[in-house]
């Protein structure tokens, strides 16, 4: 049962008895092994230099993430608290085209005069 019976003052101590240890997850001895080839690939796609002990750190972090049960899907699932995800409104092509036509750069969104800050400018040497 997700909801228990109402407690009285005399039951508070019992209620606060520990049920498990977080450190059992954080200090798991089941350290997964990742091949150096995979680690090198991840460093490469992350756009980083190989100047840290990434293999050791990735395995350490994965020992925590690895607690997740085997899933059913691929890596394309999403869960967001967005109205459009739970109550989607259908749009036809005409409505989409009209929305695009009505798009205007907004100054309050930083979409006007952005170039003067030099971002997105590739400099020649």
């Amino acid at each position: 049962m997700p909801i228990g019976k109402p407690i009285t003052k005399s039951q508070i101590t019992n209620l606060l008895k520990p049920t498990w240890s977080v450190n059992s997850i954080l200090n798991s001895t089941k350290i997964p092994e990742i091949s150096q080839k995979t680690v090198d690939k991840m460093i490469f796609i992350s756009g980083l230099d190989d100047d840290l002990q990434f293999k050791q750190s990735l395995e350490k972090q994965l020992s925590v993430v690895n607690e997740l049960d085997k899933g059913k899907g691929d890596n394309n699932s999403l869960f967001r608290l967005l109205k459009s995800d739970f109550h989607p409104v259908k749009m036809n092509l005409q409505q989409i085209q009209e929305d695009i036509r009505n798009l205007r750069p907004r100054e309050d969104k930083g979409e006007v005069g952005f170039g003067k800050h030099d971002y997105y400018v590739v400099r020649s040497k």
Binding site: T38, K41, M42, I45, V65, L68, D69, K70, G71, K72, G73, D74, N75, N76, S77, L78, F79
Partner: peptide, 14 residues
């Protein structure tokens, strides 16, 4: 990444 199998998906399910 595909190398992890379905880590992200597992997390979304939880």
């Amino acid at each position: 990444s595909a190398d992890s199998g379905d880590f992200y998906s597992r997390a979304v399910e939880v």
